[in-house]
Simulated assay, not measured.
Amino acid sequence: MILVILLVLASLALSLLITIPFTGALVRLRANYNPKGLQLDDEGNVEPHTGPVVTTFFGMLARVKRIEGWAGLYKGLMPSLIETAVLTLFAVFALNADPRYRGRTTPPESGIIGTLVYAVFSIILSMPAIIISYRAVTTPYRLPYFRPMYSLRILLTPTERRRPWTLYLTPGLFFAQFLHSAYAIIVLRTVRRFLVPTTPDANAGFEIHPVKFTIYAAIAILSTAILCPLEVIVTKLAIQRNHAAAEYNSVEQEVEPDAVSSEEYSEYSGAEEDVIGLRHEKDPYLGLIDCARRVSQEEGWQALYRVWWFSMLVGVGSAFA
């Protein structure tokens, strides 16, 4: 059993090595702040937006490679690896799930109660994991793989480190993540059980009825209209840092002196620009609805559907999970 678990963890680590560059480009593209109109500076003067304008997934992937190199493509690897390992071990030891038939994002087949327990645990774990992973991907600073405390000083504010539960109070983030998980697990998974059931024998594969599978695929595609905006909102809210007071907008400016000396990727590569532009922390989103409204007003409603085809492929691919 231990050997099987080790092999599964090794295969998951290998899959992360393949998928992390693409996941990082997805997160960056959805997090990039690209307002349509003119902005106001601190003195109320009108100034044009000067941040990067990147509208395509592969354009973002190429931009990351050009500015940050291979190291930049694998930002966020360690948080994702730790989250995957913890969820896998929890599913195996606590829910008695078979590790050989569990994907990274697939809840174990352990009944309704087991699925709900796993869902609750995954949401509790995923909150800090998502925040740390997304900030690791979008930060311009170089983060060492094996110095977690140093990296956390860069990614988290002193307030968040002193009171870790503050991460769960990030305005709108928990609610957005809960809605996304609830829809994916309760709605889509329930529909899948009726339309695309699996046989009791895992080695026998799937019993797929063409009409039912088509209906499920159509539902999954239409669900993109709900899931994609939630994913964009989760991304934007996750990188929004929590401070002791609104007037403090960086680690160096918060209550305690906590300046961290770290090299930026742009300095290392010789580039004079960051990969993405971020919204000013002095004007944060106040919640899920506020985020959706302001993204639509400032960046256009299309910004809520960045890389919508990825959400669609994940939904359709869940039929084979």
Rank of each mutant, 00 (worst) to 15 (best):
L167T: 13
L167W: 11
L169N: 14
P171L: 07
G172R: 03
G172H: 05
F174L: 03
F174C: 03
A176C: 04
L179A: 10
Y183I: 09
A184K: 02
I185Q: 02
I185R: 03
I186R: 14
I186D: 05
V187F: 09
V187P: 09
R189M: 13
T190D: 09
T190N: 12
V191R: 14
V191W: 10
T198G: 15
P200K: 07
D201G: 11
A202S: 04
G205Q: 11
E207G: 09
I208A: 12
I219K: 07
T224R: 05
P229Y: 01
P229V: 00
P229G: 06
E231L: 11
T235Y: 00
K236G: 13
K236Y: 06
L237Y: 04
L237A: 06
I239W: 06
Q240C: 08
H243Q: 00
H243M: 00
A245C: 10
A245M: 07
A246I: 13
E247P: 05
Y248Q: 15
N249A: 11
S250C: 07
V251H: 12
V251S: 14
V255E: 13
A259S: 14
V260N: 07
V260S: 08
S261R: 07
S262E: 06
E264V: 04
Y268R: 14
G270W: 03
G270T: 10
A271R: 10
A271L: 09
E272T: 05
E272P: 02
D274V: 08
D274P: 05
G277H: 11
R279K: 15
H280W: 10
H280Q: 11
H280P: 01
E281T: 13
K282E: 04
K282R: 15
Y285M: 03
L286P: 06
C291M: 12
A292S: 03
R293Y: 04
R294Y: 06
R294V: 14
V295G: 06
E298C: 12
E298V: 00
E298G: 08
